[in-house]
Design a protein around this nucleic acid. Structure first.
Length: 878
RNA sequence: GGGAGCAUAGCUCAGCUGGUUCAGAGCAUCUGCCUUACAAGCAGAGGGUCCGCGGUUCGAACCCGUGUGCUCCCA
């Protein structure tokens, strides 16, 4: 077979993904193996794959593929979230583009459009995950608005209502004037914003020209003012007890009230109180019995109650009212001011605090077991630092506003009769039944019940995800749920620790009395080179699909994994992509080299010359395999990849292959060839979870495979303890080769110039075992042993052995040699002094662990021996 | 205002429970190589006050305190 110059990823990716999928490797059914389960954080139906997904899903795929290779029955469940606000916004936008106004259509019609939109665009992201190589069980794909899922959400609402945890009430909420819906606190993003602080004077109710001046960043809310508040101990205002003043422009008479809540230092120490438009003002209003004047409409324009600027937008009014105040002589001054402003997570408009009737869920009770589980590590957080964040939030948890004034989502299962009576039920029929038994007379006259118009917060459905994807609602004791739940690991971003992680834990304990997962692995946030979060709005997120197309999924996975330690942010750098691509190329070429030996095998060929290489590589495999297992167990995935990368590139390609490589056109021992193939297979196995495509491809090229013999399913071998002597020998051999090469370089010896190498050593058996490798690696025509110096040669010292390099073409620079040896000698002597000090220190000998002391003694002896060798060599050079 | 985290090579980061004079990787830089697997490569080299200060310890990049700078979360 003709092999391409480089790895052709596009072909291989299509081929292998289709093969894995059709072979059924991704689908899971309960059996007698232990399960390994991950539920994918469901992306929004509106979503397209970005770098964050690439990182998140690469991590999950690595864990799943690795578990599969370790004998687990792996199940990775995909799905999408209906994403109430985000999707509704998209559909409204689509309708607007078609010239249709959402307001003109009934709910049912809108939902038809929404479903149509969902069918067409929703789930694109799942297709894109295939490109990344994700080994998802597609037969289990869920959507948070599937019929069964919907039913589960409604049931949960009913159960919590029954328990008295869900209630309806008027409170100050976060209002999104663009989406025209309430938001939970978590959906509000606070950003430092440059504003202006306006100083406005209010005329006092007095015959004299007396004023009180307040400072505000939101002058348009003046129209809703119902008091001015000052601190009771503020000397400046003590004379104003019981007095009144007038709201500018409106001349509404309002009281001056006193409360210790006021910060005397801020502004003028006087606060205007607008109970309808600020949570703190609202609380003050409650305390002091102030009226509430809501001056805003739901779309952010001024309402009739404002009296002025009615129907105009809040920000336009802010400008106008400043001008009008100036004209009226009420504006004292304005200054630049930087403050935190809340923005809607979804629509990015400024949030208005607003009083409104909403549905709430009391979280106090739900939070208790959920907090306990994480604090006691029944659910492990990786990295553990997020436990703090979690505790902080759970300890101060507030009631959750769960209603949204939208149509796309689970409609709140509450019905009202003509008198406003409330019936919460699973179905309209049940609600009617309640109605009839509760109010028979009214029901006889007026049978109609009106269902609540609002839908539930998206997270009110996704908090059931780990349970409901296994059919909890339909059959709570079903086999799947028993087998796969609790799931093993949740992989997600720390940003949604409250939105989602915390609530899933609560739901798990509340409805199933079991945790939803054993471990949570928090990935970092993907940032660009300048450290900015990658986002669509900034336009700094690279086109992931294009990136996969150009560089291959394996290279992309490599690049996001190589520098993403758990919980730390990842600065994405294109150079890592290149590194990944080059790595693929390297493996491809190594495969080509090995493959070229296939036809040159010869039985019974003497292979004692390379036996050392084989044993060493086996030992390294055993060693690294153990390290990688530990790293993956600790979620140090990035380190794991680095370790494997280095094993393949350095140990295998740079050393091993060069060590066993036969001469040009020379035969290779069949045994060595077979061992090499086997070593390569084991390397591919180690790497497969990280880079599945190229490993599967090479696995199938290096050896003829039977049907069903695929790397994805191949079980990892169990390694014994690596041979420490061999490992040490490997290090020594590398040091020998590097030292000789370095010396060659420094003496202007061309690679083609051969040398003679004389060795003065006491470790003859070691040198004999590596002699042939050493000879070829340093291009020596002859290696011999000596017990004294060789005239006219270059002397070097490696560990405690002396080497003499004899070369016809060399211009020997003994000065440079001497200098280098002298330098090393000095270093070693300093080293010995420091160890000596340590060992001479009584406290050290008393306190340090015995193995540490032994190690120091050994270091001392080694150092002494090396110094001796160096001194001898130096004396000889003279 | 409350909480968390980070500061190590020119750049991006590793460095697990203090213990090789412990400081490491990739990229970048420099030198030499078109050595028939790979120039997307090979063989070498240089480069650091581990942010400042103080403390604990026989011993600190690592632990504690403090200062400075940056980031994130929450109100």
């Amino acid at each position: 077979m003709e092999l391409s110059k480089n790895f052709l990823h596009n072909e291989a990716e299509l081929k292998w993904y289709a093969h894995w999928n059709s072979a059924g490797y991704f689908t899971s059914k309960p059996d007698d193996r232990p399960p390994y389960t991950i539920v994918m954080p469901p992306p929004n139906v509106t979503g397209v794959l970005h770098m964050g997904h690439a990182l998140n899903n690469s991590v999950q795929d690595i864990l799943v593929r690795r578990a599969k290779m370790m004998g687990y029955n792996t199940c990775w469940v995909p799905g999408t979230d209906h994403a109430s606000i985000a999707t509704e916004a998209k559909v409204v936008g689509m309708l607007r583009d078609r010239g249709i106004d959402k307001k003109t259509m009934p709910r049912e019609k809108f939902l038809e459009y929404a479903w149509e939109w969902k069918e067409k665009y929703g789930g694109i992201i799942l297709k894109q995950l295939e490109k990344l190589g994700c080994s998802l069980d597609w037969s289990r794909t869920n959507f948070t608005m599937d019929e069964a899922y919907y039913a589960a959400v409604i049931r949960v609402f009913n159960e919590l209502y029954e328990k008295g945890l869900i209630y309806r009430g008027v409170k100050m909420i976060n209002w999104d004037p663009k989406a025209k819906t309430a938001l939970s606190d978590e959906e509000v993003i606070h950003r430092q914003t440059n504003s202006k602080l306006y100083y406005v004077r209010y005329k006092l109710d007095s015959d004299k020209e007396e004023y009180i001046t307040i400072a505000t960043v939101r002058p348009e809310t003046i129209l809703g003012d119902t008091a001015i508040c000052v601190h009771p101990e503020d000397e400046r205002y003590k004379h104003l007890v019981g007095r009144y003043c007038y709201v500018p422009l409106l001349n509404r008479r309002i009281p001056i009230i006193f409360d210790t809540y006021i910060d005397k230092e801020f502004g003028t120490g006087a606060l205007k109180v607008t109970p309808a438009h600020d949570i703190n003002d609202y609380n003050l209003g409650l305390k002091h019995g102030l009226p509430v004047i809501d001056t805003l409409n739901d779309d952010g324009t001024m309402s009739e109650a404002a009296q002025l600027y009615v129907g105009q937008d809040r920000f336009a009014v802010r400008k106008k009212i400043v001008e009008d105040l100036r004209e009226a002589g009420n504006l004292v001054k304005e200054e630049d001011y930087s403050n935190q402003v809340g923005f809607s997570e979804r629509t990015d408009v400024v949030i208005e605090p607003r009083l409104s009737m909403q549905w709430w869920c009391n979280m106090q009770e739900l939070a208790k077991p959920a907090l306990e589980a994480v604090m006691s590590d029944e659910i492990e957080f990786h990295p553990a630092k997020f436990k703090n964040t979690y505790r902080h939030w759970m300890g101060n948890i507030k009631d959750w506003c769960i209603s949204r004034q939208l149509w796309w989502g689970q409609r709140i299962p509450a019905w009202y009769d003509a008198e406003g009576g409330l019936y919460v039920a699973n179905t309209a029929e049940e609600a009617h039944a309640q109605y009839k038994s509760k109010k028979p007379e009214l029901a006889a006259k007026n049978t109609e019940l009106r269902q609540d118009d609002d839908v539930l917060d998206t997270w009110f459905s996704s908090w059931l995800w780990p349970m409901q994807v296994f059919g909890w609602n339909e059959a709570p004791g079903n086999k799947d749920l028993q087998y796969y739940y609790p799931t093993n690991t949740l992989v997600t971003a720390p940003e949604i620790i409250f939105f989602w992680v915390a609530r899933m834990i609560m739901a798990g304990y509340e409805f199933l009395d079991k945790k939803p997962f054993d471990k949570v692995y928090f990935t970092g946030i993907v940032r660009d080179k300048q450290g900015r979060k990658m986002s669509k709005s900034l336009g700094n997120s690279p086109d992931l699909l294009q990136m996969i197309e150009d560089n291959g999924a394996d290279a992309v996975r490599f690049s996001v994994m190589i520098s993403s330690p758990a919980g730390n942010d990842l600065l994405f750098d294109e150079s890592q992509l290149e590194q990944g691509r080059n790595f693929c190329n390297k493996m491809w070429n190594a495969m080509k080299l090995v493959k070229s030996w296939e036809g040159r095998q010869q039985e019974g060929l003497e292979d004692s010359q390379v036996k050392f290489a084989l044993d060493w590589m086996d030992a390294r495999l055993a060693q690294v395999s153990g390290e990688v297992t530990e790293m993956i167990k600790d979620f140090r995935l990035s380190e794991g990849l680095k370790t494997i990368y280095s094993l393949i590139w350095n140990d295998f390609c740079s050393w091993y292959l060069e060590w066993v490589k036969p001469g040009m056109e020379q035969p290779i021992s069949a045994h060595v060839y077979q061992r090499t193939i086997s070593i390569y297979e084991q390397l591919l196995q180690l790497l497969h979870p990280y880079m599945p495509f190229i490993t599967e491809e090479i696995y199938h090229i290096i050896r003829e495979r039977k049907e069903g013999d695929d790397l994805i399913e191949k079980q990892l071998p169990v390694y014994g303890t690596p041979d420490a002597e061999i490992l040490k020998g490997g290090v020594m051999l590398q040091e020998l080769i590097s030292s000789v090469r370095d010396t060659r370089n420094k003496n202007q010896l061309k690679p083609k110039n051969t040398i003679k190498l004389w060795i003065d050593t006491t470790h003859h058996s070691f040198y004999e075992s590596v002699q042939d490798i050493l000879r070829r690696q340093v291009n020596a025509e002859h290696i011999g042993y000596t017990t004294g110096p060789k005239q006219g040669s270059i002397a070097i010292v490696v560990q405690t052995d002396k080497l003499y390099i004899e070369a016809a073409a060399a211009t020997i620079d003994t000065g440079a040699q001497k200098e280098q040896m002298q330098k090393e000698l000095e270093y070693l002597k300093g080293f010995l002094v420091s160890i000596d000090k340590k060992l001479g220190n009584e406290k050290f000998v008393q306190n340090a662990k015995p193995e540490v002391i032994d190690n120091e003694r050994k270091k001392y002896a080694d150092g002494e021996a090396k110094i001796k060798t160096l001194e001898e060599s130096l004396a000889l050079i003279g």
